[in-house]
């Protein structure tokens, strides 16, 4: 049998330049490696600096246009609601343990965000949650819940997730996410996806389930017009400040300021 075809270059044509629809730079007059002006989606940076706040600029980068007042308000409230996963979240703990054990300071945030990529309680299911909401939001939330509840495992020791972004944390509905969702739902910018998702979160309460933060973010991202692919990274960005802040607060502390289970609590199974 003839094996191993000869290795040959495909001679594919690759782009000579980096493509972008987001950023345009004009070279300075005496050094083409430096920019004398930079524009985001057509707007000059100085113009943005003078006329826009951070949330508007953030939205512009990812959407290509400025948000209206309602969009800006709802994004800002979501950013505040998600700004800190808290010191018990695995991502924050990863940042804190890395920081207290004196990692390179530049590693603290990437370490935390890497763990935040997880699909349980993290950013990992935001994309699939956005797809779930977009696919089902023309259906009755109750019927959707009835259909999906039939697929739930019985007597599971794990948290139940009825759909990406909706389920349990520590085998209960998460009251904080429910509370944040109520604040955001009351805003004028609350859109169709958020309202549908909230109804869905209500009808799954008899199963001891509710909103997960990833689902709340997914619903708002859908209403703001962001693409599902952007969901994971946007969620990571929104949670980054709290992860870093907690990491930094233990940077100068002694190793024993964070728990290290004793031998009696390290159990060989």
């Amino acid at each position: 049998m003839e094996k191993n075809i000869k290795t040959e270059h495909r001679k594919e044509i690759f782009s000579k330049k980096i493509p972008t629809r987001l950023c345009k730079e004009l070279p300075s007059d005496d050094n083409p490696y430096l920019a004398k002006s930079i524009r985001y989606h057509g707007y000059e940076l100085n113009d943005i600096l003078e006329n826009c706040n951070f949330v508007e600029t953030f939205f512009l980068l990812f959407y290509g246009e400025f948000p209206d007042k309602n969009q800006s308000e709802i994004l800002e409230k979501l950013m505040i609601g998600l700004i800190n996963p808290g010191p018990r979240h695995p991502a924050t703990r990863a940042a804190m343990y890395s920081s207290v054990s004196k990692t390179n300071p530049g590693n603290v945030l990437p370490i935390g965000l890497s763990i935040m990529s997880g699909s349980h309680g993290g950013a990992g299911d935001v994309e699939s949650s956005m797809r779930f909401i977009r696919k089902n939001m023309r259906q009755s939330p109750q019927e959707t819940a009835n259909r999906l509840s039939e697929l739930l495992p019985e007597n599971s020791k794990e948290d139940l997730v009825i759909a990406p972004g909706f389920g349990q944390l520590y085998q209960s509905a998460d009251p904080i996410t429910s509370s944040i969702s109520k604040m955001i739902l009351a805003l004028e910018g609350a859109g169709e996806a958020l309202r549908w998702a909230n109804e869905f979160a209500v009808v799954i309460q008899p199963y001891n389930m509710g909103w997960l933060k990833s689902g709340l973010a997914a619903a708002v991202f859908c209403d703001l017009g962001f693409q599902p692919k952007a969901g994971v990274g946007l969620y990571q960005l929104l949670t980054a400040p709290g992860i870093l802040a907690h990491g930094l607060e233990v940077a100068n502390k002694k190793l024993n300021s964070m728990p290290f289970p004793g031998d009696e609590n390290y159990v060989f199974e």
């Binding site: 782009s15 000579k16 330049k17 980096i18 493509p19 972008t20 629809r21 987001l22 950023c23 345009k24 730079e25 004009l26 070279p27 083409p32 490696y33 430096l34 920019a35 524009r39 989606h41 057509g42 707007y43 000059e44 113009d47 943005i48 006329n51 826009c52 508007e56 290509g64 246009e65 400025f66």
Partner: peptide, 22 residues
């Protein structure tokens, strides 16, 4: 691989002012 400004291919919105759209 240092890049000049010209090594980036921009294909987005044309130049505009914030007063036009905000």
């Amino acid at each position: 691989l240092p890049l000049q400004c010209a090594d980036v291919e921009y294909s987005g919105k044309p130049d505009r002012k914030i007063s036009d759209n905000k």
